[in-house]
Design a protein around this nucleic acid. Structure first.
Lengths: 340, 340
DNA sequence: CGTCCGCATGTGAGCGGTCACAGTTCCTCA
DNA sequence: TGAGGAACTGTGACCGCTCACATGCGGACG
């Protein structure tokens, strides 16, 4: 009786199952991995032993030899925001039955934090990483460690030298701008997001291009910071300017703030001013008035990011999943022709 | 020249480092784990060898022998919603430097899905699980597998036989109800969430109790489903009823829908009707009018859940982290005394 | 009737770390 | 000067699994 066995309750291992089923550990392994060439009767015996013992294979041991962790890492900025949260959801939903998804939400997207997060994940042995990194600073940092591990950036435009999927922001902004111009507005003002965000940058570009194509004058950009508060403040500034008849906001929250400011100044939407948002958060249909906005399919974006990553993990070319997701203009009651 | 070595590029292992540093693998291990009794010079040699080789310890191998994965699982319903997303964020932020956080978002919280998710995580070897499970159905399922692995439920009230942390929903609802009553309203109507959600249930209870304490009549509950759409529909129904002067909504989104419906019917807020929300989503300060609401500190909730879980993992009594998080009434402009 | 092949199963060697224990070396102090 | 101990380092077993290979068995075939 060597006192080899530790107590209490060492969980059963493969050998225990093998002993109970009267076979070798290897046969148990074969059953577990659905190998052919196991007699049905044997398989059943093994299965019975497994459930009798409540045996669960040890993931670490398996990983050690197969070198597969079945784990993906998702690095994100603020997962509280609607966009990142939706992408995360899409990714997780799509990954569910082939991978575990580990997350890291960073308080800031500076070079150091991003690299540290990547490093942490690599150390843990993730098979791939998805970075929800809308900031230009992050893109730069990422380019360095690419190659170290399969990595896909999402919502980063296509500027980067790294694999990335994105919504076609420029097209979305252009869509909205053209729509307003076609309604008869002289021009369209733009409350933009911070320039350090690629999305903000691209939306500006799309807006500007649409303006140029229609030969409309290009007013100065109104710089917001994504928050409703910034939209509200800018709203106060422009409420008095009679030549502002149409505003494209770079996201729905700023539009909400704008709506409130305009209402406080007695300027009616859409009679006096038309307002368009971006994102189509679920609540925007219930703003006052319901918001015309550019819908982004975040879930689809997440799904494509995962698809591309899985391609890379298996050494395939992810090109197929990479084309930008098309945005769609959702017309509600916050837009209309200018009064004039 | 035995062709033992596989190519391409087998990553360096501890023995490689040991060889380069001229020590044994055990000494390398000691350096890695900050053991005392390693000569400074030796330590430096090892460290140099590590960085020269770009060596990273293999997590699976370590896990295999230490039986620690440093991984936590978070199971959640819809991580797109503000509440769950915030909790997740709080949990992750607090866990960051001691654990990896894996997530599983379920499309439904039925018994089967929950148990399956738990099982998946246990199979992967997580050291503990946090379930963001606001539905009563989930609580029941969870009670079964408790004991199998350290598990904390969050946002489940305290009804369950399992360890859980929660916001004091009843107190929040009572707070809002009493406030409206004190303003002079005869009674307070309540747009509730689905009864299957514990939060909805508890908010109803708090509202009802406050009503009883002040001996106010108790109107029929208006059944919503958390969505702005449901608030909007109910708004249409009650807009015509002159005796409705104050409404407590079980969340901010339904309040938003209600606000829009009332506005469409020409009923002014707060002059004709006072409206209170629940949650204090970031946008609620920019609703029209800005919404009086009950703030929940989701981040704190997540942090406490993690604290309790870590206590359990280490065999400590988590009692300390368990007391409900106090909600706070945030008064804005959607409430006022009745016109009478 | 012996050979060969395919199925079913067993054997032993790792995977890359940590742990327990067994040496070393070197310094202290009688 | 030598015993004793602390500081430092090395050795081998083992964690629980999969892989490559060896083996036993039965039937098809010439």
């Amino acid at each position: 009786m060597a006192p080899t066995k530790r107590w209490p309750e060492r969980p059963p291992v493969m050998t225990d199952v093998a002993r109970l089923a009267g076979v070798s550990h290897q046969t148990v392994s074969r059953v577990l991995n659905d190998h052919p060439n196991v007699r049905p009767q044997t398989r059943e015996n093994v299965l019975a032993a497994i459930s009798q013992l409540g045996y669960r294979p040890n993931a670490a041991a398996r990983t050690l030899v197969t070198r597969r962790t079945h784990t993906l890492g998702v690095i994100s900025f603020d997962t509280t925001l609607y966009g990142p949260a939706s992408m995360l959801y899409g990714i997780e939903a799509a990954a569910q039955d082939s991978y575990f998804v580990a997350i890291a939400s960073l308080p800031a997207l500076d070079r150091g934090s991003v690299l540290e997060a990547v490093d942490r994940f690599v150390g843990q042995g993730v098979e791939g990483i998805i970075v929800i990194a809308p900031l230009t600073s992050a893109v730069a940092a990422l380019s360095d460690c690419a190659g170290d591990v399969p990595l896909v950036a999402v919502g980063c435009g296509t500027h980067a030298p790294l694999t990335s999927v994105a919504v076609d922001n420029a097209e979305g902004a252009a869509l909205a701008t053209r729509y307003l111009l076609e309604l008869g507005h002289e021009t369209v003002h733009h409350i933009a997001g911070p320039r350090s965000w690629l999305d903000a940058y691209e939306r500006i570009a799309g807006w500007r291009q649409a303006l140029q194509e229609e030969q409309a004058p290009e007013p100065a950009i109104l710089p917001g910071d994504w928050s409703a508060a910034s939209g509200y403040e800018i709203g106060h500034q422009i409420a008095g300017e009679q030549d502002v008849t149409a505003v494209l906001c770079a996201n729905d929250h700023m539009a909400l703030g704008l709506l409130r400011a305009l209402s406080e100044h007695g300027r009616r939407v859409p009679d006096d001013i038309s307002v368009v948002g971006f994102d189509d958060v679920p609540e925007s249909a219930y703003f006052l008035p319901p918001l015309t906005t550019v819908r982004q399919n975040f879930g689809e974006l997440g799904r494509r990011a995962l698809g591309a990553l899985v391609d890379m993990i298996h050494g395939r070319d992810p090109a197929g999943s990479l084309e930008p997701v098309a945005p769609r203009l959702v017309i509600r009651s916050s837009t209309g022709p200018p009064r004039s």
